[in-house]
């Protein structure tokens, strides 16, 4: 299995994302923001960071990068796409996911280990988890407050597209404690905290994040079988 990891100017976590892909048992394929076509790939990760310096709005300029045209087309064809932190912001800006991510309500950058409750285990990126499973992964963001209009929030909940909620303290004021959401078909997932930083005991608070990356392999194996 080949999982593309995009590097935008200003990406920070592309190396960790590629490492998580490798630890899960897949081959990470580096992608560049200027790539107009994707090589032969099974899934794509948009990593965290500050693409294009976060100018204008987080993800607003990355959305129009050549690689995002290709990623958007692939997502439409059912290719699994995971956006982490800045990647989540890019997916919202690209309208691949509903809602938007705004400045943390308390204005502080939050950098800590965060408990999450996985609520949707049917997506391409979360099928390795148990329903309601609590996991511990780092969060590190200043603009992680998820917002959407009440009708959209109701629809997300009713259709099982709230992938994860913050357990315990809400770190950023996100609407209804939402930490991660999926598109209608469950192949596109955006998450504000960082599963790719919780894949090894040496460097992470847990290895709970690895499940996102093993999930996509399980999903792809199922799709191929």
């Amino acid at each position: 299995m080949r999982v593309g990891v995009v590097t935008f100017p200003g990406s920070l976590d592309d190396v960790d994302a590629a490492r998580a892909v490798r630890l899960a048992g897949a081959e990470p394929v580096p992608l560049w923001h200027g790539d107009e076509q994707l090589p032969d790939l099974d899934a794509v990760v948009l990593p965290g960071g500050f693409s294009y310096g976060d100018y204008l709005r987080c993800g607003a300029i990355a959305r129009f990068s050549p690689v995002m045209r290709a990623v958007t087309a692939a997502a439409g064809d059912g290719v699994p796409v995971l956006g982490i932190c800045n990647g989540f912001q890019i997916l919202c800006e690209a309208h691949l996911l509903p809602g938007a991510l705004t400045r943390n309500r308390h204005l502080h950058f939050r950098n800590r280990d965060q408990r999450l409750r996985i609520e949707a285990t049917g997506t391409a990126w979360t099928n390795a988890y148990e329903p309601e499973q609590e996991i511990l992964v780092p969060i590190k963001s200043g603009e992680g407050c998820y917002v959407a209009d009440p009708a959209t929030l109701d629809e997300l909940a009713a259709t099982g597209r709230v992938v994860a909620r913050y357990a315990g303290d809400n770190p950023n004021g996100s609407a209804r404690d939402i930490a991660a959401v999926a598109n209608q078909t469950g192949n596109v997932v955006g998450i504000m905290p960082h599963p790719e930083h919780a894949v090894e005991p040496l460097t992470g608070p847990s290895t709970d994040g690895l499940g996102f990356f093993t999930s996509v392999l399980k999903h792809l194996a199922g799709a191929a079988g």
Partner: peptide, 8 residues
Amino acid sequence: QLLANPVI
């Protein structure tokens, strides 16, 4: 499409 995000 670019200067504003009509969602917010």
